[in-house]
Design a protein around this nucleic acid. Sequence first.
DNA 1: AAGTGGTCTAGACCACTGG
DNA 2: CAGTGGTCTAGACCACTTA
Lengths: 263, 263
Amino acid sequence: MQSRHKNINASNLPMSETKTATVLTPRYLALAETLRAKIADGDPHVGDLLPTEHMLCETYSVSRHTVREALRLLAEAGLIARRRGAGTVVLAQEVKTTYAHRLGGLDDLTQYKRGTQLKQVRAEFVTLKPEDAKRLGLEAREYQHITGLRMIPGELPVGHTDIYMRADLAPPAAQMVERLGAIADWMAEERGVPTARVDQAIIAMALPAHLAEMLQAEAGIPALQTQRTYFDPDGNLMSKSFNTHPADRFTYEMTLNRECGNC
Amino acid sequence: MQSRHKNINASNLPMSETKTATVLTPRYLALAETLRAKIADGDPHVGDLLPTEHMLCETYSVSRHTVREALRLLAEAGLIARRRGAGTVVLAQEVKTTYAHRLGGLDDLTQYKRGTQLKQVRAEFVTLKPEDAKRLGLEAREYQHITGLRMIPGELPVGHTDIYMRADLAPPAAQMVERLGAIADWMAEERGVPTARVDQAIIAMALPAHLAEMLQAEAGIPALQTQRTYFDPDGNLMSKSFNTHPADRFTYEMTLNRECGNC
DNA sequence: AAGTGGTCTAGACCACTGG
DNA sequence: CAGTGGTCTAGACCACTTA
């Protein structure tokens, strides 16, 4: 007689069951939890192999699909890694709580409200001298050097922007004005080189004299500077920007959210 | 005769196939790509329903499992949402590239290297006056107020730490020293209240006189201050910290990585 | 009540890894 | 080469939504 597999509990999994309302935990969830607990107990230690899918099917009397669904959860949680032909290895004993600062796009990185514009833009190609390159944390090669003031109409300048973009990636000068702030997006769209990583440093400094006048501020007052370095997927530097703001005109704000506590 | 379903292409999906090396794109991937393209073309517009799984099985001559695997990918990419009984609705026309600043844990938030210690710790319970509460961005209630200096042995103090922790969550004074920096973790472990969100603001300021002496620095020089507010899962404020650093002793650094461009 | 997506089974072939 | 995980099929029952 072929079993018409009604959901009779043939599995060896813990179940939360009431006589009337059978609020079943799905088997794959129960199995995932069972395996998670075993891993937490160090049953398969980190680096060891989990039983094969076939084995788990037998042990817990569930189908392979159910086993795979459970393992998928553990894999997403970063507890295990699966390699075809090799087996399933334990990566970590517990799920690590992580936090993330998430941006919709790179524009959000600049933190500027809508309505800010880059004014007094100047752009020129420069070949950095070794000492300047070193000071800026760049290679001594040719860059498109762009400077400008970040403005909100009717207010004092928010900050000064200073960008070095690899010359071969720079947009035509015509498009440049007003397109900035979205440089990274521009590069991705037009040059087909997506930004894969951005390193950002935020420092306090005394406002340099050569910026003070442009910003209509006093030299030497506290200033906040963000330094951003953009890298392509191969890890090559694409561009670097320096944004300097008088302290009372700009605050860098971010929200970090907890990710996938226990899943 | 029962078809023993060899992988003969009975499906209507695009395949990259060579005569010799049949490098198959898995059907579920091909289907996912097909559907993604259709959504991008606005075939099912945002807000509309996708064909049902059963329909997709027929249309593309694949099994339901394959359809579900494809839909799972689209769901993970945020393009669709699936609701049992209701159907699959299109959420977005295109996958939005996002970037994330990811932390292993909240300790990484402080950016302090290992080996830094909190010294000269003072702790007391205070009930904030309304004007102080407003200035600090807190409610006028009772807090455990903790101050200290972040030190690296043999060097000048890195910064000054100033924490207001909700009184009912504060750890016993005995445990407090040397446990700080990991406050959030402490609260999660011992009080069972996990931190769900952290808001952080980074500002430049002139070093206040009352901190200058402790930090062995000159009052009025540029300083970097991080302000962190910790929230529990219900959005209630748990604690707030102010960390003030002379500009030349501390830099805030972070790396943002591109997430799931096209998957 | 009909139809949706969620769970589950039994079985198959495959690409890949390792000894 | 045997065994792993990856893909796929055909079918089933279920909880849930909507009308």
